[in-house]
Amino acid sequence: MSAVAVVGAGPVGLTAALAAHSLGLDPVLLEAQPRTAVRPGSRAIFVHRATLDHLDRLSPGLRDSVCARGLVWRTKRTLWAGRQVHVRSYPASAAVPFTSLPQTVVEDLLRRACDAAGIRSVWGDPVRDVRSTPDGVALRTERGATHEVGHVVAADGARSGLRAQAGIALEGTTSTTEFVVVDVAADIRPDHAERVFHYRHPGVGGRNVLLVPFRGGWRVDVQCRPGDDGGRLVAQAPQWLPRVLPQVPGPRITWSSVYRFQQRLASRFTDGHRRILLAGEAAHLLPPFGARGMNSGISDAVAAARAVRAGSVERYARERRAAAEANVRAAGAALDHLLAARPGQRCLQWAAATAAPLWPRAGHWLDAAPYGPRIRAVSY
């Protein structure tokens, strides 16, 4: 009997398989989509240093491979209605704090690491039935294959079939405000790469705009106003993008999406028999602001493999849910700041923008608040 099955071959599932293999658990990786399936868009583009450290411990050299394919921006800038209120640059000699690249590239590197480790994988065969007992789990796939394992790491995403079959609810809220994401192709020199946040950008009707460079392009994230149709704003992107990205002549859109802030948690992170462990978006849904989703999911994956190895599944469920709750609270604080629905909030932000040229702490607050409070990374 294989010790553990991992369902879902996104970055979380691939990491879980690598982590299980590193602990001698002989994992099998099961993915519903064919290996050749194309995933559109850049998706999660920001890889935290803690995540890079996780990956390198599981597969030595993987951190360097990810960093070599990514982009590090060392300047962050914030503007209010076109006027700069904060800027900070970090020296090129400083340690790499993160890297920015399309999620698809991270997944490709993780797949190669799994292949090099000899991890068995099955692609294009969805899991259709899950039977969890006190002694283990039986998984049956669409093609009729059966996998009997001691534990399962469910990394099968926001619409997790394993979570549903285990009878675990996904609880929380979704914002009514929409956000628009547009990826624009561009070759960006590292010394020209800056993360820029605009409050009330004059080039897009006074909406808040976040610009994040990554290897291969720019991520443009626009906060819709009440009553906006996100799809219509995407359709109008060729008109407003040149005003938002004047440094990119004739901006070419490679992907776009409309999303809402998700702040949702599974009611519990394991099934009743402590045999199925939820990880990543199967366990929690978080907004892109703050780059919490994939990074926290990879921490879930590492912790899940270690919990299976150590027989500490209940502790995993308790500690990773607490971490997810902290991320949900941080996302809520970020959304509250971005919406600034109360007059007092708007006055405070305006006052900070006015004071920033003479009081740098006000500018620093305006720069940091859209992403929510920082949460200390936990090592496993």
Rank of each mutant, 00 (worst) to 15 (best):
T177L: 00
R120I: 12
A323C: 09
H54Q: 11
P91V: 15
P102K: 03
S312P: 01
D367V: 14
D183P: 02
G344W: 08
A266D: 11
F46N: 04
A113L: 04
S296Y: 08
V302W: 14
F46K: 10
V47Q: 15
H86I: 11
D336Q: 14
G203C: 12
E107V: 03
T78C: 15
V248L: 01
V130D: 08
P97F: 00
R374M: 13
A117R: 13
A116V: 07
R268P: 08
L241F: 05
A331Y: 04
D271Q: 08
G272K: 05
A279L: 06
G124D: 12
A17Q: 09
P242W: 05
V222F: 11
A333F: 02
V220N: 00
T173I: 05
R131K: 09
A351I: 12
G61A: 13
R243L: 14
L18P: 02
G206V: 13
G231H: 14
D115W: 09
A304F: 14
T78D: 02
G280V: 05
H337G: 05
W255N: 13
L286M: 07
L278Q: 07
G363V: 10
C114G: 01
H21V: 13
A113D: 14
P91E: 11
A351L: 11
V137P: 02
R215M: 04
P360N: 11
D221Q: 06
R88P: 07
